[in-house]
């Protein structure tokens, strides 16, 4: 019995000791100690999140697999600084000293201030419902609804398809131009666009909201080729419309905010460039096909602001490097 009780007591003591170690404050490593850094892990000695210092690798460096440590929790909100009251490194240092300075107590090197990317995109599919509105036509405004998908070959590069259907609305100016300047505008309406796209993430970053929580975002360039169907709106209601299928090149710039491992919010401005055939000035041919032969080609920049949410599949992933 005595042996049994000693063994039980020893086991309990070990448990207590391990729990105490777990609970104990993190001890600073000895001077010069280094931990293995994950790809893109922030530089040592950085005194605070939101303080990019010289040469700091930063949040989500493009091309890096998994930068940083301290993966943010669901919702993308997690504090980046650690420790209840860390000592100020380099106290007394010049105020304009680069914030990434490695001067100061060595334990700063162990503090992770730039979180991991919330989402790793490589080898995942992205499904994206698309909504939007055209920007740059004073006389006719289009609203668009559509969808797209992208396959992310790497964390920064993706290819995919997208398409949308347009709904149109003639503006007040369209009405006023007829009334005030006695002009009947020549207009085409967009029917749909389908493009094969590529996207490249050019920037990653993070921002704090009222210094309470941190959200991560990225910016991407996009480009693609496809086709847009348009239809002439005849100035004379007795005339037939005709349709055009225009080769379209799109370029754009987008912004994406990471919310969960499987969901982002995004907005992008894209320019769909195409040659389009318009009704001739002196059309007297009621038949659409016949009139289209005399149509006037013009080069069109169709600026569109798009927004939506995206879903990533598979919905989860594993980080493969150290925190």
């Amino acid at each position: 019995m005595r042996t049994y009780s000693i063994a039980l007591g020893a086991a309990a003591t070990i448990l207590l000791a391990s729990a105490t170690v777990y609970a104990a404050p993190e001890q600073p490593p000895s001077t010069g100690a280094k931990r293995p850094a994950a790809s893109g892990e922030p530089g040592a000695g950085e005194p605070g999140a939101g303080e990019p210092g010289a040469g700091e690798p930063g949040a989500g460096e493009p091309g890096a697999g998994e930068p940083g440590a301290g993966e943010p929790g669901a919702g993308g909100a997690r504090r980046a600084s650690a420790g209840p009251s860390p000592k100020v490194p380099g106290k007394g240092a010049k105020e304009d000293e680069p914030s990434g300075s490695t001067e100061g107590p060595s334990y700063w090197k162990d503090i992770k201030v730039v979180p991991r990317k919330l989402i790793l995109k490589a080898r995942r599919f992205e499904l994206m419902p698309v909504f939007g509105v055209t920007l740059n036509d004073n006389l006719i405004q289009h609203y668009l609804i559509g969808a797209g998908f992208q396959y992310h070959i790497t964390d920064v590069l993706s290819f995919g398809l997208s398409g949308h259907y347009y709904l149109y609305n003639l503006t007040d100016r369209n009405y006023l131009v007829g009334l005030q300047q006695r002009v009947l505008p020549t207009l085409n309406k967009y029917i749909f666009s389908v493009t094969a796209d590529a996207a490249y993430m050019i920037a990653y970053g993070k921002f704090a909201v009222h210094n309470k929580f941190i959200l991560q975002f990225g910016a991407f360039l996009t480009g693609g080729v496809g086709v847009t169907m348009t239809e002439v709106i005849p100035r004379n209601a007795a005339h037939e419309p005709w349709q055009n299928y225009n080769v379209t090149v799109q370029i754009g710039l987008g912004f994406r905010m990471f919310v969960f491992k499987w969901l982002t919010l995004w907005v992008a401005v894209r320019d769909y460039m195409m040659p389009d055939k318009y009704e001739p000035d002196n059309r007297d041919e009621p038949d659409g096909k016949a009139a289209s032969k005399d149509g006037e080609w013009r080069f069109i920049n169709n600026f569109v602001v798009q927004f939506g949410i995206t879903f990533f599949l598979p919905t989860s992933f594993k980080y493969t490097t150290f925190k």
Binding site: A12, L16, A23, G48, G50, R79, A208
Partner: peptide, 25 residues
């Protein structure tokens, strides 16, 4: 053990109420 574990858990949430960014310009 339970008390220490509870303390350990409590300590994990010590960032509650803390600013997201320290030593900010």
């Amino acid at each position: 053990f339970c008390a220490v574990s509870a303390y350990a858990q409590e300590r994990e949430s010590i960032l509650d109420g803390q600013p997201a960014v320290r030593r900010r310009v």
